[in-house]
C-alpha cells in the first residue's frame, strides 16, 4: 500500500499512526508526500488526512519511548527534503519499536541508519552554514544575507544568529525556497520573500568586502596551494554566496 501525506511533518506523523494501526509487513507499505507521488499502477493508494490528534499521539510516543534527542533527529531528517523521507521514517520507527529504548543509536540496523544519514547530512550542513553565511550591510543599518542551502535549514541557523548578532538588525534569505528570517533586535519572524533585486549597500560595505578579500588572499601560504582540499571543505556550490570566492565581485577589485 502507498500511503500519501500532505508533505508536512505533522502529516507524516499522522500517516504513520494510520500505518501502524493498519499493521502489515514493513515491506508492504511506503509513505510518500503528495507532490512527489508517482502513480503506481499495481499498488493501492491511500491518502491520509492530517489529524493533529493522531500526530500528537505519535510525537508523544516517540518522546516517551526514545527521548527528545531521537525526536530532534527525526525533525532534522524531515528537513533533508529527501523524497523517501516518509518511507524511511516508517521503516525506522517500525524497527525501533521492536528494539526499544535506545534503538535510535543502533546504527548497525540499515533502516535506522538510513534515517540517521538524513539527519546527519542536515546537521552537518547547518553547522557549516553557521560559518559560511555572509552578511552585507545595507544603507539603513540592516545586515542582509542570502544563501541556498541544500537542505531546508533556515530554521536551524536562526537561534545561532539570534544569540550571536543580537545587537544588529538582520535578514537571512533562502533564495531557493523564497523565504527569509527577519530579526529586529527582539524577535525573529519568518515569512515568504521573493527576489529582493538590487541592494543599496552602506557606504563602508565595499571597503569591508575588499578588506576581507585582501585578508583571504594573504592568509594563504602560496607555496602550499591545495585547491582540492579547499573544495572538499568548502564545496563549490556555496561559492557564489561567499564574498571571498564570488568571481563576479572579484572583478570589482
Amino acid at each position: 500500500m502507498v500511503y500519501v501525506y500532505d508533505g508536512s511533518l505533522e502529516g507524516a506523523f499522522s500517516a504513520i499512526y494510520q500505518m501502524f494501526h493498519d499493521k502489515g509487513d514493513v515491506n508492504s507499505h511506503t509513505l510518500v508526500a503528495s507532490e512527489g507521488l508517482q502513480y503506481a499502477i499495481f499498488e493501492p493508494v491511500k491518502t491520509c488526512e492530517t489529524q493533529p490528534e493522531w500526530s500528537n499521539k505519535v510525537v508523544q510516543s516517540i518522546l516517551d519511548t526514545f527521548g527528545p534527542e531521537a525526536f530532534r533527529r527525526i525533525g532534522y531528517a524531515y528537513l533533508s527534503e529527501d523524497a523517501a523521507f516518509g518511507t524511511k521514517l516508517y521503516r525506522c520507527l517500525k524497527r525501533a519499536y521492536k528494539l526499544g529504548e535506545r534503538a535510535m543509536e543502533n546504527l548497525s540496523d540499515p533502516d535506522i541508519l538510513a534515517l540517521y544519514k538524513c539527519y546527519n547530512a542536515v546537521a552537518r550542513e547547518s553547522h557549516s552554514m553557521m560559518g559560511l553565511i555572509r552578511f552585507s550591510e545595507l544603507n539603513k543599518g540592516i545586515y542582509y544575507a542570502h544563501f541556498e542551502p541544500t537542505y531546508d535549514l533556515l530554521g536551524l541557523v536562526i537561534p545561532h544568529f539570534k544569540a550571536r548578532l543580537a545587537d544588529q538588525i538582520w535578514v537571512i534569505h533562502d533564495t531557493k525556497r523564497k523565504k527569509a528570517a527577519f530579526y529586529n533586535k527582539e524577535t525573529v519572524h519568518i515569512s515568504d520573500l521573493d527576489d529582493v533585486g538590487a541592494l543599496d549597500f552602506s557606504s563602508v560595505e565595499m571597503d569591508f568586502q575588499k578588506m576581507w578579500r585582501t585578508y583571504f588572499d594573504h592568509i594563504a601560504i602560496i607555496e602550499r596551494k591545495n585547491p582540492k582540499l579547499q573544495q572538499q571543505k568548502m564545496p563549490k556550490k556555496y561559492w557564489k554566496f561567499l564574498t571571498e570566492k564570488d568571481l563576479s565581485k572579484n572583478l570589482l577589485k
Binding site: 557549516s128 560559518g131 583571504f216 602560496i222 579547499q230 571543505k233 568548502m234
Partner: peptide
C-alpha cells in the same frame, strides 16, 4: 566546538 568560516587557497580553515 568552534566554527570554520572559510578555507584559504592552501586548504586551511579560516576561523
Amino acid at each position: 566546538p568552534g566554527i570554520c568560516h572559510s578555507y584559504s587557497d592552501d586548504g586551511r580553515c579560516i576561523s
